[in-house]
Each structure stands twice: as C-alpha cells, then as structure tokens.
Simulated scan of single mutants.
Amino acid sequence: MTAEELQSLITDGLPCEHIEVTGDGRHWSAVIVSPAFEGLRLIARHKKVYDTLGARIKTDEVHALSMKTHTPTEWAKK
C-alpha cells in the first residue's frame, strides 16, 4: 500500500476538504479535514475513517494508522 492508495481509500469513503497521509507502508499518519466530523467526538471520527478502510485495517494491510481529525472550522483556526 502506498500513501496515495491509502489517501484514495479514505477520500472515496469520506468527503475530505484536506488530507495528508505519510508512512512507511504499514505504519501511517494522517491529517484529515472533513465536514463529516461535525458534532462528533474523537472516537466517532476515527471510527468513520476506519469504516472507510473496511477489511484492510482488519487484515493487517494497514497495520497502524495515527490520525488527527478536524472539522473545516477547526482546521481554519489552525
């Protein structure tokens, strides 16, 4: 899996205004900005992202994913 492939999987399942994905092929970091995160707590935001990855996260294709999830309003304040 490449960073571009992982990014594409996330954006195919979640509307993203901004996304950055980095990693080494198994361990990943992502900054994700999505209006879908509005009104959600951190754990619910992460679950939304994991849901977009489906079986890939369960089959170890994506071993670890560290995320920073923001709403567009939160991101604009950064």
Rank of each mutant, 00 (worst) to 15 (best):
G54I: 05
T2P: 06
G13A: 10
L65F: 01
I43S: 14
G25L: 11
T22V: 10
V49Q: 04
E17M: 12
G39K: 09
S8P: 12
D51Q: 03
L42K: 05
S8E: 10
S34Q: 07
L40C: 05
K48E: 09
Q7Y: 14
M67F: 01
T52G: 12
H70E: 04
P72K: 00
L42N: 12
R26P: 00
A44G: 13
L42A: 07
A44C: 13
K48M: 10
H46S: 04
T2I: 12
Y50T: 07
A44S: 13
K58W: 01
G25S: 14
T69W: 03
G25V: 14
E74M: 07
H63F: 10
G25Q: 12
M67K: 03
K68L: 04
I43V: 15
S34V: 08
K58F: 03
S66R: 15
G25P: 10
G39H: 07
K78H: 05
L9T: 14
S8N: 14
L14A: 10
K78F: 12
M1Q: 13
G23W: 07
A44Y: 12
I32D: 03
Q7N: 15
A76L: 03
E38K: 06
P35H: 00
G25W: 14
V31E: 15
G54E: 12
T59V: 01
T22N: 08
G39R: 06
E4I: 13
H18D: 15
W75A: 09
D60A: 13
H63C: 09
S29Q: 05
S8A: 15
G39N: 05
R56E: 08
E4Q: 15
I57F: 11
T52C: 15
D12C: 14
R56W: 04
I10A: 05
D51K: 04
T73C: 00
L6R: 11
L14P: 01
H70V: 06
T71G: 00
K47S: 07
H46P: 05
L40D: 01
K68E: 09
E17P: 04
E38G: 05
A36R: 05
A64D: 08
W75F: 13
S34F: 04
V62E: 06
H27W: 13
E61N: 03
A76C: 01
W28S: 08
A30T: 09
E74N: 03
K48S: 05
D12T: 15
H18F: 11
K68W: 02
T2Q: 13
